[in-house]
Design a protein around this nucleic acid. Structure first.
Lengths: 156, 156
DNA sequence: TTAGATTGGTTGCGATCGCAACTATATGCC
DNA sequence: GGCATATAGTTGCGATCGCAACCAATCTAA
């Protein structure tokens, strides 16, 4: 007599990852949405550019794995808000070079400490060794799926 | 001279969780979308109900943390496809009791082994001890955020 | 040089989502 | 009983997203 295969959704890792990510994002959103009027794609562009990086929309899309239309619209909105300068590339007339404006850098400087504090709070439920083990697994999964990691050579 | 606070998005855990979850979902979607015409919310309802459970939309919403409108529309679609029966509750006339139809149970039986195999493949990049440590951290994070876990008493 | 293919980025469009408002039933209080 | 409040679920609506199509610039090769 063969046991029927069952699945408990609450034990299913892809579901759990989605739900966790969604919950974490939800709680994080009040700092970039409520306080600064930014949505996730815009916050990702700001964080990718950082205080001084100048790069193409293509770079942001590859690095964050966002669809290029999502990057395009988020960059348009950031430019509209005056947080981002969009310049032409001398090397390639198709490219759009993105860079934070002075106002954008001020937003970045205000946002980053809050974001890092939230990350600290999130991970505070884990002992240091547990956190390290979790992050180790996370990194392995990322690598296994071909996701860009901070040690990787710059995309493009 | 104070060092300015910086943030590498690729090291930022909330971003990494979102990106990983999105990538895993993307790769999983071909089994429930391409093969069965189901989207994530519908698949979650099917998986929550399982072969024999009968429960309310409210239960599904709390258990999966989906918005009640998302559950409502996904349930309507499943009923339209003939995978789900929606009945009235004798105890409370407002409730809608959800249960898989025979066709729904056949879809469940076909989907579950594929889903479990995908989960196995996903985790195959980790040694058993690494996988255990990762899942331990995941469970701790879930508990810390108040997310329902499989050992918890049934919601409602 | 010039036609075709490729690439970076934007836009049109249909689909999904979450919020707010709504309907209908149930409950509490007098 | 009867009115106010709360709850389960649905629906209208505006916003976001990804795909496909498109535009413009670059590259390739005859």
């Amino acid at each position: 007599m063969r046991k029927p295969v069952e699945l408990q959704l609450l034990d299913f890792v892809p579901f759990r990852l989605n739900r966790l990510a969604s919950e974490v994002s939800q709680r994080l959103s009040d700092i970039y949405r409520d306080r600064f009027g930014l949505e996730i794609p815009e916050w990702r562009i700001v964080a990718t550019l950082g205080p001084d990086r100048r790069c193409t929309a293509q770079y942001v899309a590859e690095s964050t794995r966002m669809h290029k239309t999502r990057v395009s619209r988020a960059a348009a909105r950031l430019a509209e808000l005056g947080l981002l300068q969009r310049g032409s590339s001398a090397a390639d007339g198709r490219e759009v070079l993105l860079r934070l404006s002075a106002k954008g850098r001020r937003v970045y400087a205000a946002l980053v400490p809050l974001a890092l504090e939230r990350q600290r709070l999130l991970m505070a439920c884990l002992e240091p060794a547990e956190a390290a083990a979790f992050l180790h697994g996370l990194a392995r999964l990322e690598r296994s799926l071909g996701l860009p990691q901070s040690g990787d050579p710059a995309p493009g």
